[in-house]
Simulated assay, not measured.
Amino acid sequence: MALTRRHVLAGALAAPAVLRFGGSAAAATTLKISHQFPGGSLDEGDFRDRLCRKFAAEVEKRTGGALKAEVYPGSSLMKTNAQFAALRKGALDMSLYPISYAGGEVPECNIGLMPGLVSSYRQGMAWKTAPIGREFGDFLASKGVMILTWLWQAGGVASREKPLVAPEDARGMKVRGGSREMDLVLQAAGAAVLSLPSNELYAAMQTGACDAGITSSTSLISFRLEELAKHLTTGRGKAYWYMLEPLLVSKAVFDKLPKDQQDTLLAVGAEMEAFGVAAAMADDVTVAKVYENAGARIHDLDDATVEKWRAIARVTAWKDYGDKTPHCAKFIKLAGDVQA
């Protein structure tokens, strides 16, 4: 029988593991990194995509090409909400992923977007070496997922018609909060809530299904919400909304790699954190300029307003989370021990 192109393609699709990991010691391993954000380059575009590309380039360099990574932006490899489960099963190698998106599957993950719990980048990054970071990292590993790069982002609010600054502004508005816990706070403030990933926020606001969206400064820029918003509440300086959005690797995939390649992933992942913090903080400032140039009114938070949001969170989101599971109760306590 003649070997046709169709037969070759069919054979390739039937044996992805052979293509990825190779049949000989000399074959390179290629990891796939998925995320939901717009694609760019090493030097331009959404910094989360750039972080993944920088990570991939450095890993390939340090391993002499034995370990490579390909970046798939814009949920082009798989849908956003499917990525965490795929990591757990080893069906996806890596993802830069808002950890709270996994809260429906693993409730403990909602600690990663707990309103009012983290109030600065310094406090968030301190989790990594504090008991909360070690305990949460071990817990994720038990679920089949490992954190390579700790990344926190402050959030702001883009709104179509009226500003959303203080809790009293939320009454009667339809708002995307970004996590179950943020939704509980918004509902307590009188808002209706929508649950959807940030890459679907533009369409929801464009159709009027959503009056305001809370998301990271970088997403407020990358998803072009300034085209729809008349008001922006920034996260520069002060914020009640900080999201843990780490670079993750499937433990099943990680465990199959040789020790030297595992060490490279861990080392490069840790080194990406300085870039991530600096880029996130820069976007907190840049987003205000982008929206101001588009004609939106800019609003900043003060201590009193942040405390209003935190006061609601303590009796709604924090309590709800702490009552979910023994792990949740432990995590909320340990996180509270990390000083601002």
Rank of each mutant, 00 (worst) to 15 (best):
A335H: 05
N199H: 12
F223W: 09
H231K: 05
A27F: 12
V306C: 13
G124S: 04
Q262K: 06
F331Q: 07
L184S: 03
L148P: 01
G237C: 04
L201A: 15
K128S: 03
V145M: 04
Q206D: 12
P131W: 03
G137V: 07
S216P: 01
K251F: 06
A57Y: 03
P115C: 03
L3M: 08
L13R: 15
T80I: 09
A15Y: 13
D300W: 10
G74C: 13
D46P: 06
G269T: 12
L194Y: 11
M272I: 11
D284K: 07
R20N: 12
K61F: 15
S119H: 11
A304T: 10
P98Q: 01
R134N: 11
G45S: 10
S217M: 03
G112C: 14
D284C: 15
S179D: 01
A252H: 09
A335G: 13
K79R: 15
E273Y: 11
F37S: 06
K79W: 10
A14V: 10
V285Q: 15
H35R: 13
S120Y: 10
S76K: 15
T218Q: 04
M182G: 02
R160M: 04
E181M: 09
R122K: 12
M94C: 07
D303S: 12
I147W: 02
L244A: 05
E273G: 14
I312V: 04
Y121C: 13
S95C: 07
I332E: 00
L9R: 14
Q83K: 07
K54D: 05
K32Y: 11
G103F: 03
T215F: 07
I214W: 08
M173D: 04
G156I: 02
R224G: 11
R314L: 13
A270W: 10
N293Y: 06
A2S: 15
T63P: 07
G23K: 11
R176Y: 03
L194F: 13
G124H: 05
V249Y: 05
D283E: 15
S41L: 10
A102Q: 01
K61Y: 15
A26V: 14
G156Q: 13
L13W: 10
L265I: 04
A274Q: 15
M243A: 08
S198W: 01
Q36P: 12
K79M: 11
I111S: 00
A25W: 11
R48I: 03
G177M: 13
K143Y: 05
Y242C: 03
A166L: 09
Q83S: 08
C52P: 04
V175F: 05
L151T: 12
W309F: 11
T149N: 02
L184F: 08
V290H: 04
K143G: 08
V185L: 00
R53F: 06
V18Q: 12
V8G: 03
S41F: 09
M1C: 13
K251G: 06
V253S: 10
M173F: 08
G116S: 02
P131V: 03
S100D: 14
A274E: 14
L194A: 14
S95G: 01
Q123V: 08
K289F: 10
M78C: 13
L51H: 08
A317T: 13
N110Q: 09
Q261T: 06
Y101L: 11
H299G: 06
L184G: 00
A56F: 10
R314G: 06
R122S: 05
A282Q: 14
A304M: 06
P107F: 02
D323R: 07
